Amino acid sequence: MTDRAAQPVERQLPTEEARDLFGLVRELAQREIAPHAAEEEAESRFPREVFSLLSEAGLLGLPYEEEYGGGAQPYEVYLQVLEELAATRLTVGLGVSVHTLACHAVAAFGTKEQRTEHLPAMLGGGLLGAYCLSEPASGSDAASLRTRAVRDGDDWVIDGTKAWITHGGIADFYTVLARTGGEGAKGITAFLVPGDAPGLSAAAPERKMGMKGSPTAQLHFDGVRVPDARRVGDEGQGFAVALSALDSGRLGIAACAIGVAQAALDEALVYAADRQQFGRPIADFQGLRFMLADMGTQIEAGRALYLAAARLRDAGLPFSKQAAMAKLFCTDTAMKVTTDAVQVLGGYGYTADFPAERYMREAKVLQIVEGTNQIQRMVIARHLAGPESS
């Protein structure tokens, strides 16, 4: 496996604190994550101890307020941390992104009391979160979800099934979107559900092409009782809560995609420099050099795109269009770059002895999660050309 630390990406970080933080992330990634990544992915092992370590190091709450245990870092910094983690192991990078997404509802829409009660444990107390929006029959059409919460005195009783839940069955808390009113987006409300709530159970994890170390499972809610104090935001505000989180979550996926692409390029560069054919390294051949040049250019463009969107977010400016663009471009780039990396390695790239094939399998899911890339194109087109004619 390539030693990524030998040629680290040159980063523009806004503060000395951020540079120190990044040094910590790189050291932790190379010491605690990289040595076990290939073996644990092959054995479908989730590295819960790594997430405990990240929590202790303050890396599970980077973009949130210090008052509640967060790192108070701008998204510009947080996303580059995600990229570094994902380049070492996507299960970890994407897991941190999902956890951050799961914390968003309470951090952005929770009451002062809810933030004070829940956020310290969520951000730095060793807890792991998950985000429950998709269902077996409502993926891209999230507003048609069927999981229902019915008011019963001071409680809500939740029944239904959620699907494709990262950390499903192992999370300590779930941000759950459920229908409390009529059809459509206005009938949805957000809830914070404990992972050990009676009536909550998980199906067997999905058997996936990649990211085998990250459990993805259906969650079944069978009369799960949640006090109204765990309703997040107003009744009927849940879809707005979900969309607000997804804009930021798409940037997380974009950063993870560039991390995977960078890891694949690093692997291809080392191999091309070492592999001899016709008496010289294959990196000397123009056809391959041009392929490497394209890979590097696409990665730099993707990184610039997600960082530009992050800086808009940090400035308090609209960034939904740019988030969709970044998610679309960066994940398509990851798929192309990882495919090209396999090609550079030739037959070796197709074997599990080298990580290129794992990067290629992992890149595919990034074109699907947090809204498929077809959905991203719809979002972008609406920003550019207005809504579709009825």
Results as ranks from 00 to 15, higher is better:
Ser134Gln: 09
Ala264Ile: 06
Gln262Asp: 15
Ala217Asp: 08
Val106Asp: 03
Leu53Met: 14
Lys112Glu: 15
Ile380Cys: 00
Thr189Gln: 08
Arg358Gln: 15
Phe285Thr: 02
Met1Tyr: 05
Glu235Ala: 13
Pro281Ala: 14
Leu21Asn: 05
Val365Phe: 10
Lys327Asp: 05
Ala86Met: 03
Leu21Glu: 04
Ala341Gln: 11
Ser97Cys: 12
Leu265Gln: 13
Leu79Thr: 05
Leu13Trp: 04
Leu59Tyr: 06
Ser55Lys: 05
Phe173Cys: 00
Leu53Lys: 14
Gly386Glu: 03
Ala245Phe: 11
Phe221Lys: 03
His220Cys: 11
Leu59Asn: 05
Arg11Ala: 04
Ser144Thr: 13
Arg146Phe: 10
Glu56Pro: 01
Val379Glu: 06
Tyr64Ala: 10
Ser140Pro: 00
Glu67Leu: 12
Tyr78Thr: 15
Ser244Trp: 05
Glu41Leu: 06
Met378His: 07
Val92Trp: 09
Leu94Lys: 04
Pro355Cys: 09
Ala42Cys: 03
Leu269Ala: 09
Pro74Thr: 06
Leu21Met: 04
Ala293Tyr: 00
Tyr64Gly: 10
Glu10Phe: 02
Phe354Leu: 02
Glu362Tyr: 08
Arg311Cys: 07
Glu388Ala: 13
Leu246His: 01
Arg382Val: 02
Leu133Thr: 01
Asp228Met: 09
Ile33Pro: 01
Leu345His: 12
Ala283Met: 12
